[in-house]
Nucleic acid binder design. Structure first.
Length: 190
DNA sequence: AGCACGATTAACT
DNA sequence: GTTAATCGTGCTC
């Protein structure tokens, strides 16, 4: 069943933790591709210097200040798209970056988009999974709790705490402490 | 109007 | 381990 807005309208860290084990679903041309989320990162508040919202409200970050349960898809390094889901209450910025999934339904669609790469590298990175699932800026600022959305999350398996580890977030080398090493990355060992 | 940089990846050495 | 690819964004001039 499709996760509701109330799921996302919580503390970003809890949402990031609870998204582990749930299913990211993409509908395209009536076909379904999906994967189980196994790695996430939390970005929360203007104080968080690793979060884009540390720049305050801008055209780009506006979606993170909006209602929870929306997609935030942005472009980096001139070639890659990254997928986030907006959290917290409207007015307070936060989002969870989806960093890795395990492909499940529609693997032939994913394989076609990741042609030539080994199966283990289809969706084991935030830009890789976006490529595999056909996620681009077109999907930015979509209400993923709406019944007709083409991208959403379904409740999946519960992951016990003993299978979840936390680490610093990736790629924040030039961000000052404590944000650089605060353990807001969540990984499920499945 | 211009510029430095980035929540990455793949293909190198 | 190193590096190029490539461009939107936000900041400075």
């Amino acid at each position: 069943m499709q996760l509701k807005q109330t799921f996302f309208a919580r503390d970003t860290l809890k949402v990031a933790r609870d998204l582990l084990g749930s299913r990211l679903v993409r509908l395209e041309d009536g076909k379904r591709a999906s994967g189980i989320i196994v790695e996430t990162e939390a970005y929360r508040g203007e104080d968080d210097l690793g979060c884009h919202c540390s720049a305050g409200r801008t055209k780009r970050t506006e979606v993170m200040y909006g209602p929870p349960g929306y997609s935030y898809v942005y472009f980096v390094y001139g070639m890659h798209w990254l997928l986030n889901f907006v959290t917290e209450s409207e007015g307070f910025p936060g989002a969870v970056l989806i960093r890795a999934i395990i492909p499940d339904e529609g693997q032939e669609i994913i394989a076609a988009r990741r042609e030539g790469r080994p199966r283990s590298e289809w969706t084991n990175g935030p830009a890789k999974l976006c490529q595999a699932m056909g996620i681009t800026g077109q999907l930015n600022n979509h209400n993923i709790c709406h019944p007709d959305t083409s991208i959403f999350v379904e409740r999946g398996r519960e992951i016990p705490d003993k299978l979840v580890s936390t680490t610093p977030r990736v790629g924040l080398d030039s961000v000052p402490e404590p944000w650089k090493t605060i353990p807001w990355r969540f990984v499920a060992e499945i």
